[in-house]
Amino acid sequence: MDPSALIPEAIGISVPPVWPVVLSIITLSVHLLLMNAVFGGTVIVFVHSLSGGSAVSRSMSRRLPTLLALAINAGVPPLLFLQAVYGQFSYVSSILMAVFWLAVIAALMIGYYGLYYHNFRYERLGVSGRRLVMTVVLCLIVYTGFMFSNKMTLMLRPEVWSGYFSDPDGYLLNLHDPVLIPRFMHFAVSALAVGGLTVAFFGRRKGDNDSVDTGMKWFRRSTLANVLMGVWFLMSLPKDVMLIFMGRNMAATVLFCAGLVLLLAMLHAAFTRNVTFAAVATVLIVPVMATMRHLVRQKYLSPYFSLDTAPVSGQWQPFLLFVISLAVGSLCVAYMLRLMSRAERS
């Protein structure tokens, strides 16, 4: 079957694609930083809970519910932009794996409650209770991340969508894609690095050297491990996609080189225990990686769709309303976080 016959008609975009794409990269970068902090922070708290817990894990557990709430909300804009630009691919992948995709909502809600429960019942839970709660929460977060990887890779492969005709009940996953596991592992290990950096960052603010030492140790080891994960991910890509980073596409090649420079900066900061430099390098590398991700998506879908030919209606009002709402909402969130920070210090 011709895969293009399975792709719905392109959804019109209200403004030129460059605008939603740029905003998608910016908002996705914010979401990734927050979500990685949650994922990595949860792993660190879980590992510490295996030995009974520590002051480091106790401090981090207080911040995880807030970080997860921010990550979930920050994840809405990039998902909406994805639907707006690549809706004919994104909606289909959601339908093909509908059961697993809808279960993500329940997983996040239960995981969110579990983080609150772990924080407020920390002493009463005891060692075994904390282990159990964090095991459940970590499994739910891993499930969520793995399902997102499934969805984002499944939408790039219309050639496997015909599996719907033998499995029309919403249980189709992208498990046979050689890119799926290395892609997920690359993001998961990077989350450990960001989680460690988050622990170190908050520890530095409080003058807690134990948190700084623990966090930078996680950051250093995870960043080193992620070099291997990144190579695995790159080599698993189809050859024509991989080669865009090897000179076939100038923008992709420049971004790849910029990513390597920032990676070296992260490693330097990790070994010198420079939390500020590590945070700056990490914040800079995330949008670079998000842009590379966008170029990979474009290359995958190039046989079926191009942004240059996407229908544009020229209706700017909804876009401007979103931008204004995003700016006002961001200011409100920043103000609330400032109030919360003041309350913690008092």
Rank of each mutant, 00 (worst) to 15 (best):
L180Q: 01
I44T: 02
R248Y: 12
V22S: 15
S61I: 12
E123F: 10
G163L: 05
T214A: 14
A310K: 03
L197P: 04
G53Y: 07
V254K: 00
N73D: 04
A188I: 06
A71S: 12
G247S: 09
Y164R: 05
F120M: 12
G163M: 06
F201A: 13
V179L: 11
R293Q: 15
V21I: 14
V312I: 09
S128M: 10
V323Q: 09
R130Q: 15
A74V: 03
F165G: 06
M109W: 14
I13W: 11
P287C: 08
A106V: 12
D2H: 08
K217S: 15
A343I: 07
T223Q: 09
G87T: 06
L264Y: 06
A225M: 14
R293E: 15
R345H: 15
P77A: 04
V280N: 00
I72F: 14
C257Y: 04
S93I: 04
H268W: 13
L80T: 02
T153I: 04
V18E: 09
L339D: 02
T153A: 02
A270T: 01
P3N: 09
D308E: 15
V160P: 10
F184Y: 15
K239Y: 11
P178D: 06
L260W: 05
S59N: 05
V104N: 08
M242A: 14
V323I: 10
M1E: 05
S341M: 13
M229N: 05
S51R: 15
W232P: 04
S90I: 10
K206T: 02
A71V: 06
V99L: 14
A200G: 03
L331A: 13
L34Y: 06
P77N: 00
R205V: 02
G75N: 08
L108R: 01
A281H: 07
K299L: 04
M1G: 13
G75I: 08
M216T: 00
R204V: 00
